[in-house]
Design a protein around this nucleic acid. Structure first.
Length: 283
DNA sequence: TATTGCTCCGAGATATGT
DNA sequence: ACATATCTCGGAGCAATA
């Protein structure tokens, strides 16, 4: 789906946004506004009063049904309480309510999930959708809503050890950390310039070299296995595992590798070692 | 087996540097 | 003005869990 159809929340609620201004010990602290209930109540009432017709304005430019006529995972509707950039603002402070992640889960249970699950009927489909009570976005899958709720949570779970900036997503953090480590896995074959993200490389190729990447969807999703310790890239997870275990035995990557995968890899390593003659046997 | 969470990713927007 | 860097957030695959 073209992202132009999505409500963009270009955020920066100025106060807390700058993580550098917070001492480390406060960055990940739970922050539950005393007024959270009020906020939720407000939003709920607001939702009720405004969204009974779905689109109070009636002339929303946002799309609710895809061109194909089928239901989308995300059906975008205008947020009822947004700032100019589409961001959600607290009715009290103008800032997005800050909710620690665990609290967000409670929030899901206590305030959002049951009441958010609605039977949403359109002319083209009739299916249960999960609605965010904060911004009124609707999702076909509960897990999509659950994850979306994190967007409204200013306390990020994943903190950069270099600058303290927080992210909702581990991969976003990993990608961000590359800006500190200088690891650039995506290299331009033509001029050898390297980039931290594939889309930067693609943009470069297109604008500078006039090369349009013709990736098929599957190719696009091919993973690039990057060693975040040294920038080594491998064609497979096994390859990366072998590299890391060999070159960076203390790496967190090894600790994160699932036992299952580690066992599979260990078996492979063992079988390879068994097949190759041991040096002392050669002699 | 169905659901959920984690992770990787791309698309697009915005920020920054030259 | 343009190129590049960085960020946000939804889509999707897969593994873990109920």
């Amino acid at each position: 789906m073209p992202r132009a159809f999505l409500v963009k929340r270009r955020s920066p609620p100025p106060a807390i946004r700058n993580w550098d201004e917070l001492p480390d010990e406060e960055r990940a602290d739970t922050y539950i506004p005393d007024t959270i209930d009020c906020i939720l109540k407000y939003v709920t009432e607001d939702s009720c009063s405004n969204s009974s017709t779905g689109d109070p304005a009636g002339d929303s430019p946002e799309r609710s049904i895809s061109d194909s006529g089928s239901c989308n995972d995300l059906i975008t509707t205008p947020p009822h309480n947004t700032d100019q950039t589409g961001g959600v603002t607290s009715p009290l402070s103008g800032d997005t309510p800050k909710i620690e992640d665990k609290e967000t889960e409670n929030l899901d249970e206590k305030h959002l999930s049951p009441r958010s699950k609605i039977k949403f009927t359109t002319g083209l489909c009739n299916e249960e959708l999960y609605s965010c009570e904060i911004c009124a976005k609707r999702f076909r899958l509960q897990r999509m809503l659950n994850r979306h709720l994190k967007c409204h949570n200013q306390v990020k779970r994943h903190l950069c050890t270099f600058c303290g900036k927080g992210f909702n997503d581990t991969f976003d953090l990993k990608r961000h950390v590359r800006t500190h480590t200088g690891i650039r896995p995506y290299k331009c074959d033509i001029c050898n310039k390297a980039f931290t993200q594939r889309c930067s490389l693609e943009s470069h190729l297109k604008k500078i070299h006039g090369v349009q990447q013709g990736y098929a969807y599957k190719q696009r999703r091919d993973k690039l296995f990057v060693c975040e310790d040294c920038g080594y890239t491998g064609p497979s997870q096994e390859d990366l595992y072998l590299h890391v275990s060999d070159s960076h035995p203390g790496s967190a990557f090894l600790k994160k590798t699932t036992k299952k995968l580690a066992a599979i890899l260990q078996n492979k390593i063992t079988s390879v070692l068994q097949m190759s003659p041991r040096p002392d046997e050669d002699q």
